[in-house]
Amino acid sequence: MNRKIRVTVNGTARAVEVPTYRTLLDCLRNDLGLTGSKEGCGVGVCGACTVLLDGKMISSCIALAVSADGHEVTTVEGLAGDERLHPVQQAFIDAGGFQCGICTPGQVVSAKALLDANPNPSDAEIREWMLGNLCRCTGYYKIIESIRAAAQRSRA
């Protein structure tokens, strides 16, 4: 019960044949070789698998690959431009917004979506938007600082 799907991933059109039961996350990681998105909890709670589907954050671990057919997916690998990190990525480095890094792809994808939607978020807005991205290393303080710094940098 395989199906051929066409997905634009990080701006590139891709066609891939997958079993219907393939999650979008496994499709990205195993079929397309994009291992930046991670599987943590596997039930949509931790956010390590966050990608953008048509610009909106989703949990790719509980999305079927077939449901992305004809849509656009942005993963962490698609954030940086040529040779240059996205301001959110740079801010996470400068402000210590990660440690082990396993949740970081999901964090930066979510933070990018936040700043796209709201370039000047308050701390409360950052906390509300980022609620679904768990981090076990940082205690979140520096994630908030990173997003604040990225917002500031984008405004400058």
Binding site: G36, I93, G96, F98, V108
Partner: peptide, 15 residues
């Protein structure tokens, strides 16, 4: 800031 930063924030780090 972190020495391994670029790899981790870009998704390039291979766990």
């Amino acid at each position: 800031g972190r020495v391994d930063g670029t790899e981790k924030v870009s998704g390039a780090a291979r766990y």
